[in-house]
Write a protein that binds this DNA or RNA. Structure first.
Lengths: 342, 342
DNA sequence: TGAGGGCTCTGCAACGATGCAGACATCATG
DNA sequence: CATGATGTCTGCATCGTTGCAGAGCCCTCA
């Protein structure tokens, strides 16, 4: 079962364990002759270092954990991909867990019996746990928050400028001449901070255009899945004065909205223009393809991993935790332009 | 930085390290009084067991690795989700890595310097590494193969019956009265075994219907992404006798195909019916929604994890490695039925 | 009374690796 | 030739935990 250890190799090569270790790691000087002899035995036995033992001795594991609500949500899948890539480039591997948006699950991950001690740090995209809980529970494990919640600055945080992103998306719709722009995805309660920021951006855009907000056009959704986008649109088009454009707080809502509009016989973008946020790949291939605000996911991942590794390597916390803002840009596709394929 | 250890707690509570350990684990009998006293100190210091040390002592980590080509491919994201869930139910956490279909990357994961020793086992969905390589390299790490490649039985393997799945999908198209059924996704080379099985099923269906195979209707693609599905369709509809149905070897190809058909002004399913394999969520919301063959992903994940844990826990290999076949079923949606939304 | 048996609790060794200090041999230098 | 500097190699202690064997102690029962 278990592979050969340094001791096995040392015995067979008639050298000390320490010398074998030196050969394996290339640390201390070893004569070429001896090195060759030890290497031969290493190969013969097929030695592989036991990383658990190494980790115990060195106090770090080279593993970080990524905690997302649902891995099969395209945005998180794409983000996870980038994070794994960024982590690997820095010599780390990534353990992934899902919370299903369950606050208890999130807390459990930080609790006494969790495996948090297996990881050098934690990247978490929290849904319902609050910053205070995070800080209180896990003051030992380095944490970086991902793309959700703007907290009170108690923990490092990486995200796009949600207010600006929402404002730009809404402004784009207004620039098309649309005047009844709906918003789908508000979450007017404690843990819906990202959604609220997007609502703020939406209101800003309307205000700048001198348009009064029609509160009936703002639809709340408890989460951001396709079905809720479809349901929200069905309600909106049943209004006496239906919208001529819809700003959805993420691409899944938008794709659900497009689906419902199409089925109801409304043309997108002719009758209703639709824009989302996230730039998931699916939106490039939907019919019509989806205009969206694209966060720079690669940059987001790199900045997040870098921030986490800094926290890990910093002996003492220095200064306030960074609030990192990642660039985004509007990508116009058929759902608002009716133009060329992309 | 580092949290308190058993030793710290023991010193403070004036008991032996072993007793603290017993309290933490509830192993040996400890008097209620002493237990309470130790527990108090545990809470005071906020003790958390160092899982690395525990793992070293116990020789297992409670972690398994999942290796997929691309995590942002919806099928793999959905599968990963199920695997994480299944693993958690059994007390395991999951590290995920991506190979980007790069055989060298796959081999690297199994090579000397990999972190394979950190994991109790490996679930791998191989693209270009062969079974022989897997077996030779990693005879120490328990491995279960996922959903790709039917090897010569050298390693445990979990997948659907690809021949049957393809046959049923094709037969469904024939039952609609279609006679020129194209196939997109063949991979007539060494590592395209899954694709070849699907081609076999396609041919079987045509043969049973007494239809001769038109080889120009079988389009090969090096991988299974949307873009290639779109490109393949563009070639097919340019044929003198274009197809009236397309069987795509996965849903992404199918969605790309639908997109290209729609843009070219062809109606789906009226002009061309389309069917895929995988049942990714996106296919439920596409326009039109996608008929597909759905593998039971939950079952696939559970069987895979169970098989892996069995391999891990079995002292000696017993009998030939299992070939586990997971059920699948055809789900008819608009892309072949033109019927009700789903 | 004293042997035997439970119940608690403890100390030692070990998992497999690395950090550190030093042993030993060799070599250059004055 | 003595000295110190270098270059190789080794042994011990240690990371934090658990397995194992056994030490006390109290109680029971002949």
């Amino acid at each position: 079962m278990a592979g050969p250890t340094l001791r096995d190799v040392a015995k067979r090569a008639n050298v000390s364990i320490r010398t074998v270790s030196n050969v394996v790691n290339g640390y201390a000087p070893v004569s070429d002759e001896l090195r060759a002899r030890v290497q031969t035995v290493l190969d013969e036995l097929g030695y592989r270092p036991n990383l658990i033992a190494r980790n115990l001795k060195q106090g770090r594991t080279g593993m970080i954990a990524l905690v997302v609500p649902e891995l099969d949500v395209p945005y998180f899948a794409e983000l996870a991909r980038e994070i794994i890539t960024a982590a690997r480039a820095r010599g780390y591997v990534v353990m992934i867990d899902q919370t299903d948006g369950d606050g208890d699950r999130e807390r459990e991950l930080l609790g006494r019996d969790s495996r948090a001690t297996l990881f050098d740090g934690l990247l978490i995209s929290p849904i319902s746990v609050t910053a205070e809980e995070l800080r209180g529970r896990a003051n030992k494990v380095p944490i970086v928050l991902l793309g959700e919640h703007i907290f009170n600055g108690s923990l490092p945080h990486v995200a796009i400028d949600n207010v600006a992103a929402a404002r730009e998306a809404t402004t784009h719709l207004l620039d098309l001449g649309r005047r009844r722009v709906a918003a789908i995805g508000d979450q007017p309660y404690a843990t819906g901070e990202t959604a609220q920021l997007r609502t703020t951006g939406y209101r800003q855009a309307l205000a700048r255009a001198g348009i009064e907000v029609d509160e009936t056009l703002i639809v709340s959704t408890p989460h951001f899945h396709r079905r809720l986008g479809a349901e929200a649109v069905q309600r909106l088009i049943a209004l006496p004065e239906p919208p001529d454009a819809v700003f959805c707080y993420n691409d899944l809502l938008a794709l659900g909205a497009i689906r419902a509009l199409t089925r109801a016989g409304w043309r997108v973008p002719d009758d209703v223009a639709v824009v989302g946020i996230d730039d998931i790949e699916e939106g490039q291939y939907s019919t019509p393809s989806l205009t969206t605000v694209a966060p720079d996911k690669g940059e987001l991942a790199r900045r997040a991993v870098d921030a986490l590794l800094e926290t890990i390597n910093a002996a003492e916390p220095s200064g306030p935790p960074p609030e990192i803002v990642v660039p985004h840009r509007l990508i116009v596709r058929e759902s608002t332009a009716g133009g060329q394929p992309t």
